[in-house]
Design a protein around this nucleic acid. Sequence first.
DNA 1: CATTGATATGAATCCTACG
DNA 2: ACGTAGGATTCATATCAAT
Lengths: 359, 359
Amino acid sequence: MQKDTILQGNCLEILKTFPEQSVDLIFADPPYFMQTQGELLRTNGELFSGVSDEWDKFESLQAYDSFCKAWLRECKRILKNNGSIWVIGSFQNIFRLGYIMQDLGFWILNDIIWNKPNPVPNFKGTRFCNSHETLIWCSKNKNAPYTFNYKTMKFLNNNKQEKSVWNIGICIGNERLKDASGKKIHSTQKPQSLLEKVIMSSSKQGDLILDPFFGTGTTGAAAKKLNRHFIGIEQNELYVEIAYSRIEKVKTLSNELIQGKLETKPPRVSLEMLKCAGLLSENEKFYDKNKNFICTLTKNNKVKDKDATLSIHKMAAKYLNKENYNGWNYFYIFKNGDFVSIDSLRYGYEKLVNLKDTI
Amino acid sequence: MQKDTILQGNCLEILKTFPEQSVDLIFADPPYFMQTQGELLRTNGELFSGVSDEWDKFESLQAYDSFCKAWLRECKRILKNNGSIWVIGSFQNIFRLGYIMQDLGFWILNDIIWNKPNPVPNFKGTRFCNSHETLIWCSKNKNAPYTFNYKTMKFLNNNKQEKSVWNIGICIGNERLKDASGKKIHSTQKPQSLLEKVIMSSSKQGDLILDPFFGTGTTGAAAKKLNRHFIGIEQNELYVEIAYSRIEKVKTLSNELIQGKLETKPPRVSLEMLKCAGLLSENEKFYDKNKNFICTLTKNNKVKDKDATLSIHKMAAKYLNKENYNGWNYFYIFKNGDFVSIDSLRYGYEKLVNLKDTI
DNA sequence: CATTGATATGAATCCTACG
DNA sequence: ACGTAGGATTCATATCAAT
């Protein structure tokens, strides 16, 4: 499949041409079906120009549901089994989207609130100012695996776990694409930082990202910047043209964060492997961090104290009076005159293996 | 109907006993259908006691839908035509609720995000920390009137229009109801300030508020404090007992804010009334704020310039080159050697009337 | 150049009482 | 129910002109 390209034409028909399980991530920003009525005047009497595009008009809520069911069903077919999908909407449509996605078997991982510090006010004072939009993030099925770059997101959030409410300004100023007369080209252009957060959190370097409602290409720009591939689908020829020239100018970053280095897992080496490599002896004595002797390693890789034979995890939990605990982080052995964490032995094993590979 | 009471028993059956159009406001905090998988452990190995109550168990998503359709349909029947309804939920159930409410003909006014500064973290680092819940606020039908205390909410928000994302801490500390052993009594007790904001914004003093999932009575406590009436429905006898004793202790406030004084409209005095009171003469000359003569008052309370005869609003808009404008804030007359806003004359009229009343 | 003030504008289900 | 007259209502930010 051709990557980093925009397919111009009808969204649903183009989606049907994709092979099964062919994309890693989907971001969809469909029409919201706003159902606005008449004109809205600003408080100074001027006309407010919101969304009055033809593409946002539907016959009824039922017609909107059918449309969404169709493209979401295709998205499910196209998505890889370990991929995930994001959709964005507002109160007018997000409950339709979420309901349909659950019915199709998508499994909701989070609903994310895009909180806008600078929303359009409610000019007439008739309701609360609508200052947010909602994104729904789903894996393909209930127990399907998915990519979540937890440590990267934590690092980017002052080393605090990232939450489900994101404060991001709306797309204005230089970022907003305008025509020669200064008029906005797309009525609902999303801020690129929103897309970057989506892509950064839930895809890997080199992944293929599909945006079935590409518009002026914010998803493509963010994907290129973060060293991912994209495919866009967009009906409007002008949008396609603008998106291409916009993405052309984007430079791809490459650093350890974007490469996902923070997400590399510690080595998973078993007690058995450590014994085979000679890093643990049979009947090795295990101590706690205060150098108290706790238990002895057995032949079948359990540990034994005076009362019981347990896994290293259950044994650690027993001494901490907890339900569960990671024994790798609890036990030490005495080696060459020093106490050494059993977890650190696993890094030693990794080194030995790498050494072998070089012979 | 008995007010300020809790009906103990099956929610749906009790709802069916209510007469049509009998309550002003509904707040519903239904079971969430969390579908948690087995036990959830904190990182230190302790068991996390989230929501695993019997009342949160449903056979399937379809069973949950049917249940919600049934109680929401009754709520629609019971709600007054100028009433409104709030429901609260999280990503597990809010899309079911919103979809069903739209299908039942409720008209969404806002979706409100309860953003928690102190959420339960995601212990396993598998997703974004779910740090919010969503409330949906609906009027009974598309064009139905509803109460929204806009100015009160603005006043309470540093005189800025209130938005759709509310930052409110979760219910902890002294506010959280606990049993003798210090264990929380209800697993999902809501913070009272959340309920106060709901009630303050969308009901009037003396209104009747229904909570079909009353729990330990947060809605009742907030209603009593803000001088509203409540009816609660709750199956669990222990919750009912605790709610009664809790609400007993609440003191009712009464000040101008709670009485809704900020929502009273300014005097509506017509041009005709001002003429009758002698505050405007026939053929009065109208000027703009820069003392330029614009137009003349006519017998039928329009104004006439050299080209046309229009309402004061249309005339003001014409000179400002706007679609619309409030003429009361645009025109001045020359009186006793000074230029006076025609709007200020209306306050003068009010004084005259009050003077008469004292004779 | 720095500061101040006026103006423009952004996914909007945006009035209501009365006849 | 529906049309119409009367009249109530805005926040944050970017840009640009003026000082």
